[in-house]
Design a protein around this nucleic acid. Structure first.
Length: 594
DNA sequence: GCCGTTTTCGGCCCGACTGTTTTCAGTCG
């Protein structure tokens, strides 16, 4: 059983237990374990087979280790079946609706016998939901809207899409005199490939300006509806369907709020625990010294004042981290994947940036399915300040993209030679994106491959193979001695196509063994490899190339998306092949022939 | 159910907003 399947079963169990009213800390323990499993690159089944002790993993103790073992060995979980006897499985889906949590799901089920989204819709329209205590007219309206959203939206926005929807709103708020500073926090700031919503922070110098900013926000022309609007916090949905939250803050707590709302949640929890150990309290208002409280009488009331105690930090993020004896941690690293420990030890990575990129090794032209010519692509790369590029049109197997036969690729080289003479200031390498065929062989003969400078290999057909066959196919393809880079290694298209079944751990090991680089394809729909695989590649010492796979000049800009992903994988310039100077890159190309 | 720089028992992050409440529960992030 795959890790993702194990995680899904445990998540279902946690959802059902929560609806059943189990101990909230038990639920949290399950969710922590699920998160740990989600971050693993190695199959749990394999770890177990080799006798590893799963309780070594964070958040996994005796019980969860035995649940995992049961799932791996039997494909089922007895406890889940037992709980599902008492709580209908479909109820877990209801809690995916905005505004419906475990308590409301339980009530809907016990009092109305509602278990599915469709039944909930019927009950809400029939007036039955409103009759329940704790539900009113507004709740019902909200539930009906949430059902619509659930059916329409289906998930999250690509990061690159979200910023386009957001830009007009940003411009309109930035134009206000009352707004001293405006920043996007949340998963967007952390560089995640998709975002569920946008968290905006506005700093005002005068608290009296808050109402004006909130009005401008909720009154913006692109707002489809206002979900909530308080003094410091508002929430809207744009006409594009993108949810946006705004928090308005004063200068003294702005940095604390920026840190808090940038997250991730898991990072914040670790930061707060660290603060606790130091006798401090961290909230979005700042870092405070915890006051000793002996009296129990009014303690709870005092405890509700968020700014109680002496504030020792809050204006900037640097201050907040500093109060906890830590250096500033880049947002892209804040996922509680060891960044706090690394910060403490002074071993945070110097993450790779656009300024480190010297070339782009994957792009298409009018010779296959690209829209611009070799010369146009080359000039555009030069204008971006690159030292080199590789032209990598498709090989013949990809007929829909007019893939190149050996004859046509030789013709292309003649044109490329002319462009080399016409375009100064940048080195153009001969490349090709060569298909790995179903049997693992390559789509062009060795006599062509030897004359190419840069050989990418990739899968564009037979996605349906089982994991063992696909893994073997890819490893055979990349182990051909003339291959340089494995392009878009998992084949996923975000929100459209799942990765093909492939054992990435085995592929990464093979890449290391054969000195082949793995691509981080920067196309916002691909972002392939994922961050956790990049992290693993770095651990193993596998070279990574960040490529745009541009099919027209404008797509060379995808490099930005790729770098955000690279940073989330903790990559430094030294890990990335196309950060090398032209001379060093040439050496890398000669790495096997010496 | 997990975990340990005070701990193998007794904790487990913190606050805003809404709706339906006569003082607070539920949800969300």
């Amino acid at each position: 059983m795959e890790n993702i399947e194990i995680a899904r079963r445990l998540e279902e169990l946690a959802d059902l237990l929560e609806i059943q009213g189990a101990n909230p800390f038990r639920i949290r323990a399950y969710r922590n374990a699920i998160r740990t499993i989600g971050g693993l690159t190695r199959p749990l089944a394999e770890s177990l087979a080799e006798g590893e002790d799963l309780t070594e993993l964070p958040g996994i103790g005796k019980d969860l280790a035995s649940h995992i073992q049961e799932l791996v060995e039997t494909g089922a979980l007895e406890l889940l079946e037992e709980v599902a006897q008492e709580v209908p499985r479909e109820l877990a889906t209801l809690t995916r609706l905005d505004g419906v949590g475990p308590k409301k799901a339980q009530k809907l089920w016990k009092e109305l016998d509602v278990t599915t989204v469709d039944e909930l819709e019927d009950a809400a329209q029939g007036g039955k939901v409103q009759a329940l205590s704790g539900f009113g007219k507004k709740s019902v309206e909200k539930i009906l809207r949430a059902i619509q959203d659930y059916r329409n939206r289906q998930g999250r926005f690509l990061r690159a899409e979200a910023i386009q929807y957001l830009r007009p709103l940003l411009r309109s708020l930035e134009a206000l005199d009352a707004v001293a500073k405006l920043e996007v926090a949340g998963s967007y700031r952390r560089g995640k490939e998709t975002v569920g919503d946008i968290d905006l922070l506005a700093r005002v110098e005068d608290q009296g300006d808050r109402a004006e900013v909130m009005e401008a926000f909720t009154g913006f022309s692109g707002v489809a509806r206002v979900e909530m609007a308080g003094e410091t916090r508002g929430s809207v949905v744009l006409t594009s369907g993108l949810p946006v939250d705004l928090r308005i803050l004063g200068a003294d707590s702005y940095g604390a709020a920026l840190h808090y709302f940038t997250g991730s949640k898991e990072h914040n929890v670790e930061i707060r625990k660290r603060a606790q150990r130091r006798g401090l309290r961290v909230s979005e208002y700042g870092v405070f010294e915890v006051e000793e409280e002996d009296s129990s009488a009014d303690a709870s009331e005092d405890g509700k004042d968020p700014e109680a105690g002496r504030r020792i930090a809050g204006e900037t993020e640097e201050e907040v981290f500093g109060a906890l004896d830590l250096p500033w941690i880049p947002p892209v690293l804040r996922e509680n994947r060891g960044e706090i420990q690394a910060a403490e030890e002074g071993t945070l990575p110097q993450v790779v940036g656009l300024e480190d990129i010297r070339g782009d090794l994957h792009m298409h032209t009018t010779w296959s399915d690209g829209k611009d010519s070799i010369q146009e692509m080359a000039e555009a790369c030069r204008d971006r300040g690159y030292e080199y590029l590789a032209i990598t049109d498709h090989s013949q197997a990809v007929t829909v993209a007019r893939g190149l036969t050996p004859e046509r690729i030789r013709e292309q080289w003649e044109e490329l030679e002319g462009v080399r003479e016409a375009v100064d200031g940048i080195q153009i390498f001969r490349g090709c994106e060569v298909d790995i065929l179903k049997d693992g062989s390559l789509d062009l003969p060795d006599e062509i491959l030897t004359e190419l400078d840069v050989v990418l290999v990739a899968i564009h057909s037979h996605f349906e193979l089982d994991q063992a066959t696909m893994t073997e196919r890819i490893i055979q393809g990349l182990s051909h001695p003339l291959v340089d880079v494995l392009a878009h290694p998992t084949g996923r298209l975000i929100k459209r196509r799942e990765p093909y079944a492939v054992d990435m751990e085995a592929v990464l090991q093979a890449a290391r063994e054969h000195g082949v680089a793995v691509e981080l394809n920067a196309n916002p729909h691909r972002l392939d490899l994922h961050d956790r695989h990049l992290f693993r590649a770095r651990e193993l010492g596998v070279d990574v190339v960040v490529n745009t796979d541009a099919h027209r000049i404008s797509q060379l800009e995808f490099m930005d998306s790729g770098l955000a992903q690279a940073q989330r994988g903790w990559l430094e310039a030294g890990d990335v092949v196309n950060c090398r100077s032209l001379a060093d890159f040439r050496d890398w190309l000669d790495r096997r022939t010496g």
